[in-house]
Amino acid sequence: MIVGDSKPLEEILSMIEGREKVLVLGCRGCVTVCNVGGEKEVGILASALRIARKKAGLPPTVEEMTLERQCDPEYVEELADVADKYDAIVSIACGVGPQFVAERFQKVPVFPGINTTFIGGALEHGVWAERCQSCGNCLVHNFGGLCPIARCSKSLMNGPCGGSASGNCEISPEVPCVWDQIVQKMSAMGRLEELEQVWPNKNWLTARDGGPRKRVREDLKQ
């Protein structure tokens, strides 16, 4: 799941300054699950913008809309008949959403209403943790199902750095050392000797470091 955080209201107000008619655009995808960009959050943000603009003596015209997904052109197309009516669109989808909307509707300024932070999962209600950096070459099966790339502060592939204390990371003491967890997990499975393998330097070309990535499924293309 893509996890994000709402931008401060003041920042959004500054982005749409001088724009009379504004659309707050939500997404029913990941940002709904993490409670920053779904239909409920669209209503909250739109109301807050109206109140703030009215207090400032500005036109409070802020409308609301939520798409099934903003990362899919099929759903973005639902804006085709209304996009040109607005002086600005505030997208509270992940970082892909405002880009897709801006690419489709060239004349309307599109502003991001959230900050996309990481790919993770829920530890408990209201708590999410990073679990993946989308490196393009998943190797978690070699480490007891735990990812040293995303969960080690140094992204070490070959054992702990030696600086952890009491099972916690030396860089972020409040974060458990994933290598401590990996050793315990592999030991419990009777696979500890597998960690003696020395892994070569990671090929980051499959990750973002190789430039923007594209996935083509010929069997799905029409």
Results as ranks from 00 to 15, higher is better:
3 V>E: 05
4 G>M: 03
6 S>D: 08
12 I>L: 11
12 I>A: 08
13 L>H: 07
15 M>A: 03
19 R>H: 04
19 R>G: 00
21 K>S: 06
21 K>D: 02
22 V>P: 01
24 V>R: 07
24 V>P: 05
26 G>R: 00
30 C>D: 11
32 T>D: 15
32 T>F: 08
32 T>E: 15
35 N>C: 04
38 G>M: 11
39 E>A: 15
40 K>C: 03
40 K>I: 14
41 E>W: 04
41 E>G: 05
42 V>D: 06
46 A>V: 07
47 S>T: 12
47 S>W: 04
48 A>W: 09
48 A>I: 09
49 L>K: 02
49 L>P: 02
50 R>S: 00
52 A>N: 03
52 A>C: 03
53 R>D: 06
54 K>T: 10
55 K>W: 07
55 K>G: 06
57 G>Y: 00
57 G>V: 02
58 L>I: 02
59 P>I: 02
63 E>I: 11
67 L>Q: 04
67 L>V: 06
69 R>H: 05
70 Q>K: 11
72 D>I: 05
72 D>G: 04
73 P>F: 02
73 P>S: 05
76 V>Y: 02
78 E>M: 12
78 E>L: 13
78 E>Q: 14
79 L>Q: 09
79 L>R: 13
81 D>Y: 00
82 V>Q: 11
83 A>L: 07
84 D>G: 01
84 D>F: 01
84 D>E: 03
85 K>D: 09
87 D>C: 01
89 I>P: 12
90 V>R: 04
91 S>I: 02
98 P>A: 04
100 F>T: 11
101 V>E: 02
104 R>E: 12
104 R>L: 03
105 F>H: 09
107 K>F: 10
108 V>C: 10
112 P>Y: 06
112 P>V: 04
114 I>G: 08
115 N>S: 13
115 N>I: 10
117 T>M: 14
118 F>L: 01
119 I>A: 11
120 G>M: 07
121 G>S: 14
123 L>W: 05
126 G>R: 05
129 A>Q: 09
129 A>F: 03
130 E>F: 01
132 C>W: 00
133 Q>E: 10
134 S>Q: 14
136 G>V: 03
137 N>D: 15
140 V>Q: 03
144 G>L: 00
144 G>E: 01
144 G>I: 00
145 G>A: 07
147 C>N: 09
149 I>N: 05
152 C>A: 05
152 C>S: 12
155 S>N: 08
156 L>Y: 04
159 G>K: 11
161 C>I: 00
161 C>M: 02
162 G>D: 04
165 A>H: 08
166 S>E: 15
168 N>I: 08
169 C>A: 05
170 E>G: 01
170 E>S: 10
173 P>Y: 08
174 E>Q: 06
174 E>M: 06
175 V>I: 13
177 C>V: 09
180 D>A: 13
181 Q>K: 14
184 Q>G: 12
186 M>G: 02
186 M>A: 02
188 A>T: 04
188 A>G: 03
190 G>D: 06
192 L>A: 15
193 E>W: 04
196 E>R: 14
196 E>T: 12
197 Q>I: 14
199 W>C: 02
199 W>Y: 13
199 W>T: 05
199 W>A: 12
200 P>D: 02
201 N>M: 12
203 N>P: 03
203 N>V: 01
205 L>E: 15
208 R>C: 08
209 D>R: 08
209 D>F: 10
210 G>L: 10
214 K>Q: 15
214 K>R: 15
214 K>S: 14
215 R>A: 11
215 R>D: 14
217 R>Q: 15
217 R>N: 15
220 L>Y: 13
